[in-house]
Amino acid sequence: MGAFPPSEPTKKRFVSEMVAWSGKAGEYPNGDPELHHVAGSLFAEEGEPYEAERHLALGTKDSAEQLAKVEYEWYAQDESYTAALYAARAVFPYLLTSNLRSANKAYLIFTSRLSSSSKSLSVQEVSSTSSDMRVYPSLPLLNFLGLLLLAVQRGSPDLYKQLAKHYAPYVKEVGTWDDALAQIGEMYFGIRIPRPGNPLMDMLGGMMFGGSPKPKPKKVDAPVPPAVD
């Protein structure tokens, strides 16, 4: 992979075929994490954040750091109030692949870079008996991500609703988070996504299968042993 010159157009194709092959031939249905990590890191280095995201999201435990760095570097080129938009680009993909460890790691790396590079940013420490949190009064959505990461560990739907209520106006302003958040709500908090059905399909389904099947939410409340990578 490293042998490809940076702007070689066939590289993406090569990498995606390679990863697909590793998924079919190896023991990882989503492609070998090591390959994803190497591919994602290369794309990150070449300034292809979207490709980097696609691979680092499925990489190894080292990928979280790489992805957080890419997102931070990207953020550094944007307005200071946009921090959460970039942090979310690392946090959501990991949450949606049930990789809480990487989601937390990416958030931690992103926020510590933020704190160390902008000394004037005000931060307040809040702690309770079981959790600690750094609150950024000027960046509500960054707090939202931090609190969400704590809430998914508990998985009770009222916590999610409490968060959603407080941050609704900010989330609405972002506009692109609804889909991810709905999926997170379903995966971790058991809040079913209302699926607007196609009436014709529902009717056909009803005739053929004796009732429309209920959509199965991907729930993660039975932890499988963590991967040893």
């Binding site: 023991e27 990882y28 249905p29 989503n30 994490p33 979207y50 995201e53 696609r54 691979h55 999201a57 499925l58 979310a88 680009r89 959501f92 993909p93 949606l96 692949t97 049930s98 990789n99 809480l100 460890r101 990487s102 937390n104 309770s128 008996t129 079981s130 959790s131 990461l149 704590l150 809430a151 998914v152 560990q153 508990r154 998985g155 009770s156 916590l159 692109t176 988070w177 991810a180 999926q183 971790y188 993660v220 409340d221 932890p223 499988v224 042993p225 963590p226 991967a227 990578d229």
Partner: peptide
């Protein structure tokens, strides 16, 4: 949060050998 039981550890990961996804989610 304190009053709710912990269901997932902060370092929880699904086993990538078992979980099949429809590709990664990206924003």
């Amino acid at each position: 949060l304190d009053s709710r039981p912990l269901k997932l550890q902060p370092d929880y990961t699904a086993n990538p050998k078992i979980v099949e996804l429809n590709g990664p989610y990206t924003l």
